[in-house]
C-alpha cells in the first residue's frame, strides 16, 4: 500500500512522541525546529530514523525547505513516488 501525506505525517508524529523530550501536543502543523526545539543535528538524526522506517533517503538539501511535520511527510511521499 502506498503512503499518503497524512499516513506519513501520523507515522512521524508517532516516532517523535517516542522521545519523552518532545512536547505532547504536536501535530502535522508543528514546526520541527521552533516547536520541537531541535537543532540541525537533531533534525538530521531524526530524519534518519524515519528514512529507515519508510526505506527512503531524504537528501540534505531537501531538508532546507522543510519547516513542518507535514512538509517532511510531503517530501517523503514525493521521493517515494519518484523512486
Amino acid at each position: 500500500m502506498s503512503e499518503t501525506v497524512a499516513s506519513v505525517s501520523a507515522l512521524i508524529v508517532k516516532t517523535l512522541l517516542a522521545n519523552p523530550k518532545v512536547p505532547r501536543d504536536i501535530n502535522g502543523s508543528s514546526k520541527i525546529v521552533e516547536d520541537l526545539a531541535f537543532d540541525s543535528l537533531a533534525v538530521m538524526n531524526f530524519v534518519m530514523e524515519i528514512e529507515d522506517t519508510l526505506d527512503v533517503s531524504v537528501p540534505l538539501d531537501r531538508l532546507a525547505d522543510i519547516r513542518t511535520i507535514d512538509d517532511l511527510a510531503a517530501c517523503i511521499v514525493s521521493l517515494k513516488q519518484a523512486s
Binding site: S57, L60, D61
Partner: peptide
C-alpha cells in the same frame, strides 16, 4: 564541501 557543490547529499549511520 557538500554545500559548496550541487550534488544530492545523503547521510549514512
Amino acid at each position: 564541501g557538500s554545500r559548496l557543490g550541487h550534488a544530492q547529499v545523503i547521510r549514512f549511520r
